[in-house]
């Protein structure tokens, strides 16, 4: 049964690495935000699988539940912060502002 969890963990990790390429080289700022959101969702599944792999699912599932809510709040917060600045100005999405 462990081999199922190990293979699933590896598949999810490869998917996260692929999406990380989009986060690093995304042409627009929204692409990066989308990639971060996808990686967060994959992290939740990864936490659940690692919990069953380590035979302590309850502990890891609590973390996964909290992480799901925090991931959503982070995405919405960043979007609310940038939305007024984005509105009607597509150039603001692409031009990386010096931070």
């Amino acid at each position: 049964m462990d081999i199922v969890y190990v293979v699933s963990v590896v598949v999810v990790l490869v998917g996260m690495l692929a999406v990380l390429k989009r986060v690093i080289s995304g042409p627009t700022l929204l692409d990066r935000l989308l990639g971060v959101n996808v990686i967060g969702t994959k992290t939740i599944v990864l936490l659940a699988l690692i919990g069953f792999l380590a035979d302590r699912p309850g502990f890891f599932l609590d973390i996964a539940l909290a992480y799901a809510l925090i991931n959503f709040i982070a995405t919405i917060a960043v979007l609310r912060h940038f939305e007024a600045r984005f509105r009607g100005r597509a150039s603001a999405v692409t031009e990386e502002e010096p931070s």
Partner: peptide
């Protein structure tokens, strides 16, 4: 919800 918010932000910014 977050997918909808991302699409709305992109559309309001004028992404083609």
């Amino acid at each position: 919800t977050s997918t909808h918010a991302l699409a709305r932000a992109a559309w309001l910014a004028g992404l083609k």
